[in-house]
Design a protein around this nucleic acid. Structure first.
Length: 309
DNA sequence: GGCCAGGCCTTGC
DNA sequence: GCAAGGCATGGC
């Protein structure tokens, strides 16, 4: 068993926050696939311990994947600007934005349209079991996520039968774009947020929200602020209904949270979803008054940040 | 049986 | 630009 230092980190919260879909918890261990290798990880105090099917999976790789190199205290200090985000930070300090593998991240979030996490998870497992490669480590066995070259050749009808629905055609078409080299994901690293988002939204099935997720989780664009129904509910705590349009919500997020708005989004998303589960009822209303009952009172919004370079 | 889901796309104004 | 509606589906 190997280990590495993981101060100011909460593995369980990070993996439960909805940013990835394939990690499975068995007791105190979390099982996943990284770089084609099976790996299991657990946290003991300020240390990560892991076993893997690939001896080449180093502590440096794991540190990079879980973003243990982030100066989390600095990041949280920059976004901790009102009572809502503060409550989320207090509840989930240690949640980090992982650096996901671009193709798996892109394909996974392509499947999130009009969908829920439970079903998304099952779709991805189905894809892996049918079109990935089997890997084993001891008594544990799983499958890699299928590469674009494989999915590009799969008949759309087969994916539809796996429960992908209307997303099947989008996935195959995007896989063909990537497999053919028309879109080269590896070249997006280091490009600007605007360039990455513009490239991604040209692909079928990838709109504003999904592109922001990919930019944030795969290409480390921390200014990206994915707006789904939960984030919209979170923003309803700050903004009047008339300002809950995409453009105005993005503008507000940038002003309120700055260069690490994506971190703020993930904390708010996880915090609001968890609180909603505690209430044992679904949040139908996006009315400010309704949502305000869930959060600490009173709400205070800090003055705008200086513009981000 | 109705509502919900890490939305996208087209249409109409 | 923005809103509305279709999409097509399993879980609770």
């Amino acid at each position: 068993m190997r280990h590495c230092a993981a101060p100011n980190f909460r593995l369980a919260t990070t993996l439960a926050s909805g940013q990835t879909f394939r990690w499975q918890q068995v007791g105190e261990w979390y099982y996943g696939v990284l770089d084609g290798a099976l790996i299991r990880v657990r946290q003991v105090d300020d240390e990560l311990q892991w076993d893997t099917s690939d001896a080449h999976l180093t502590a440096e790789r794991l540190t990079h994947y879980f973003a243990l190199d982030h100066d989390l205290e600095h990041i949280l200090a920059t976004i901790d600007r009102d009572d809502h985000i503060h409550a989320a930070i207090v509840a989930y300090r240690g949640l980090r934005l992982m650096r996901q593998e671009p193709w798996e991240c892109l394909a996974s979030y392509l499947l999130t349209s009009f969908n829920n996490i439970q079903r998304i998870t099952r779709m991805i497992e189905n894809l892996s079991q049918h079109f990935g490669q089997s890997i084993t480590c001891g008594s544990w066995q799983t499958y890699t996520f299928p590469p674009p070259e494989v999915l590009a050749e799969v008949p759309v009808g087969r994916l539809s039968l796996l429960g992908l629905g209307f997303r099947a055609a989008h996935l195959v078409e995007v896989a063909r774009h990537v497999a053919s080299g028309a879109v080269r994901l590896e070249t997006l690293h280091g490009r600007t947020y605007a360039e990455i988002k513009q490239t991604l939204t040209q692909l079928p099935g990838i709109g504003d929200k999904v592109a922001d997720c990919i930019a944030l989780f795969a290409f480390q664009c921390y200014a990206a602020f994915p707006i789904d129904v939960w984030t919209r509910r979170a923003l309803a705590l700050y903004l009047p209904r008339r300002d809950l349009t995409l453009k105005r919500m993005h503008a507000f997020a940038s002003t309120q949270f700055g260069a690490y708005a994506g971190y703020a989004q993930q904390y708010l998303y996880h915090w609001l979803r968890t609180r909603a589960a505690w209430t044992r009822r679904s949040p139908v209303e996006v009315e400010h008054r309704t949502l305000s009952r869930w959060v600490l009172q009173p709400m205070q919004v800090a003055p705008p940040l200086e513009p981000v370079a």
